[in-house]
């Protein structure tokens, strides 16, 4: 039986990041929505359950750390991957404390994020049995 497509939300205030990631993840068989503003992304999370959330940290308005916290409150089993261009040891540690699946500093190759997303998928599919 065909498995249903996993849904991915990408939040990054730099449109070029979303533009790069969306087609490559869609090609891998995921359903992908992208957002450049955290408030709009949070509205989407309230209406839709995303299996995987990929979020930047440094953004105007609600930052990525707060966004992932809010998103996890709504859907605790959504898996979160943090991507950041301004990485610090504190943000890395805090991200893992908040239960993110992985922390990836920019720049990254598409293959790097694809590999991480595949690991998340394996975890989710395994959990779902």
């Amino acid at each position: 039986m065909a498995q249903s497509k996993l849904k991915i939300l990408i939040l990054d205030d730099e449109p070029i990041v979303c533009k790069r990631l969306k087609p490559s993840l869609e090609k891998q068989g995921f359903e992908v929505d992208t957002f450049n503003r955290s408030f709009e992304a949070l509205q989407a999370v309230q209406n839709t359950k995303y299996d995987i959330i990929i979020t930047d940290l440094k953004m105007e308005g609600m930052d990525g750390m707060r966004f992932l916290q809010e998103a996890k409150k709504i859907h605790p089993d959504s898996e979160v991957i943090v991507i950041t261009g301004f990485a610090t040891m504190e943000t890395a540690k805090e991200s893992f404390k908040k239960g993110v699946f992985d922390f990836i500093a920019k720049p990254f190759n598409l293959s790097e994020i694809q590999r991480v997303v595949m690991r998340v998928e394996a975890k989710i599919r395994g959990t779902q049995g």
């Binding site: 730099e14 070029i16 990041v17 261009g85 301004f86 990485a87 610090t88 500093a105 920019k106 720049p107």
Partner: peptide
């Protein structure tokens, strides 16, 4: 390139 800006940002940080 986006990658060059990102490397620069990591170095500044």
């Amino acid at each position: 390139s986006q990658e060059s800006l990102e490397i620069l940002n990591q170095m500044v940080t």
